[in-house]
């Protein structure tokens, strides 16, 4: 089963990150490196990316077949997606274990979502 581990950020988590000492930040980044390496080694990692700050984002609207963009950040959005891991593992328990190793999990900013399968068996 594939699961998407979503890592969110908000002004609070950003503030915490900015107040960390150099060593603490290094330790946080090290935790990510270790998690990524261990998931690659176990053959569970499909892809992981960290996203640029929401201020670099653009919102796209198509009107009359024409695409228009609005530049971020978007004030009404309290939380933003900061990065993700797409993993393929044996169980949701295992996916939760993966998510619990993301440093942001300490602040409750990590979510596990199952990916819909294309299998049409085991149904009906």
């Amino acid at each position: 089963m594939k699961y998407l581990v979503l890592i969110y950020g908000n002004p609070m988590s950003r503030g915490i990150w900015e107040r960390l000492t150099e060593e603490q930040r290094a330790a946080g980044l090290q935790a990510y490196t270790e998690l990524t390496e261990s998931l690659a080694a176990s053959g569970e990692l499909i892809v992981t990316e960290a996203l640029a700050d929401p201020s670099a984002g653009k919102r796209v609207t198509v009107q009359d077949g024409k695409a228009m963009t609005t530049d971020g950040p978007f004030a009404e959005v309290k939380e933003h997606l900061a990065g993700f891991y797409l993993v393929d593992c044996d169980s949701v328990e295992r996916a939760v274990e993966v998510a619990s190793r993301v440093p942001e999990a300490e602040f409750g900013m990590v979510e596990v979502r199952p990916v819909l399968s294309l299998s049409d068996l085991g149904s009906l």
Binding site: K2, S42, G43, L45, I46, V47, D88, L118
Partner: peptide, 16 residues
């Protein structure tokens, strides 16, 4: 067939 990247499968096999 499994809809995952080749590197993922290669790693699974080598790990196994």
């Amino acid at each position: 067939a499994l809809l995952v990247p080749e590197a993922t499968v290669a790693q699974r096999i080598s790990r196994a």
